[in-house]
């Protein structure tokens, strides 16, 4: 086929029928030239289609210049919006919106018995519900795998005693404790789910109010608890050491934070770092099929730690600012 394009004599088999047609047109010579020109274009297209995929274009763009499709640099987050206490029935709740990612978290408290091996600690359970409203891919059991992945990652990040003090949830040593059910609802998917979920969880835990226990008495094997009659007689949890997850998405040789959904599809590996306020890394894990060079990984972790520190600080400031507005604060929820 290239023979024809270079001006050779052999027409390609697919064009033979046309080229050999009798000259019905008076402008036959031009006609043929047009065919050849279009054909050359096609050849180029076919060759280039396999030359570079969109993912490679993005890698090239990000690698050379520190500019992303929406004008951010590699280490910029998109603006986020947070509101706590949005669900009145929950002990604590928060809603976080990061561009198109929308997360609602509710915390529910329940009385449970502690694990025998950890008699002084309370319990915490994460559950992620990927609503089919977010993307059609979550329909049926589609979101289950992702939900489990996120809840497992949160459980690992919060596992460290340095990260979240579960002993504050203990009511009666070895007998009774509080169990926190952290329910996470993903309402919309716009990329960077891990970061958004962890921030929303931290905000919801910050907002959580656990009822105070006035008296506990042992009656044989069973425990009698007396909760305060006043529903506002509660204590808050200390979330200052709770970790935030920072996703570093590897595109080409560089890592970007807060990837959009498009950037996520162009990357084949990400590192997620759980960082606390004291820049302590409580867990690190990798998602995706790709691999990291040890040197790159070390640098990535350092970047993630620095950014995690920033994220924690900014979230804390925002939560404090919201608290300053007092009890009369208006709840905006989902209405504009």
């Amino acid at each position: 086929m290239t023979g024809l394009c270079e001006g050779g004599n052999e027409p390609p088999s697919s064009l033979k029928s046309i080229v050999e047609q009798p000259n019905e047109y008076s402008h036959a010579p031009d006609w043929r030239r047009v065919q050849v020109a279009v054909c050359m274009n096609l050849m180029k297209a076919v060759a280039s289609a396999s030359a570079e995929t969109p993912a490679q274009i993005m890698q090239r763009c990000l690698g050379r210049e520190n500019l992303r499709c929406d004008g951010r640099t590699r280490l910029d987050y998109r603006p986020m919006e947070i509101e706590t206490d949005v669900v009145s029935h929950a002990s604590g709740s928060a809603r976080l919106r990061l561009a198109n990612t929308d997360i609602l978290v509710g915390v529910k408290t329940e009385i449970d018995t502690p694990y025998p091996e950890r008699p002084r600690e309370g319990k915490m359970e994460f559950f992620v519900d990927c609503s089919a409203n977010a993307t059609p891919a979550f329909e049926g059991r589609g979101g289950e795998e992702l939900g489990t992945e996120i809840s497992n990652s949160l459980a690992t990040a919060y596992q460290s005693p340095e990260a979240f003090d579960l002993t504050s949830l203990c009511i009666l040593h070895g007998q009774q404790c509080w169990k926190l059910y952290v329910d996470i609802l993903i309402l919309e998917c716009g990329g960077n789910l891990f970061d958004a979920v962890s921030l929303a969880v931290k905000a919801a835990l910050h907002n959580t109010r656990v009822p105070k226990v006035k008296a506990a008495s042992m009656d044989g094997g069973s425990v009698d608890l007396h909760l305060s009659d006043d529903p506002f007689d509660c204590y808050r949890l200390d979330v200052s050491a709770a970790p935030c997850l920072v996703t570093l998405c590897k595109i080409g040789d560089h890592c970007v934070v807060d990837p959009t959904a498009e950037e996520e599809t162009c990357s084949n590996a990400s590192v997620v770092v759980a960082v606390t306020e004291n820049s302590l890394v409580t867990s690190v894990f990798k998602t995706g099929v790709g691999s990291f060079h040890p040197q790159t990984l070390l640098e990535t972790l350092k970047v993630g730690q620095a950014i995690g520190l920033d994220v924690n600080k900014v979230l804390k400031d925002a939560l404090l600012k919201e608290e300053e507005q007092g009890d009369k604060r208006q709840c905006y929820g989902f209405l504009k």
């Binding site: 640099t73 603006p79 919006e81 950014i307 920033d310 900014v314 925002a318 208006q330 905006y332 929820g333």
Partner: peptide
Amino acid sequence: MTQNVYIRLASQRIDNT
């Protein structure tokens, strides 16, 4: 390091009609 994380509150939401 420059500030590259922004978290706003719902009360700062602006009406964009």
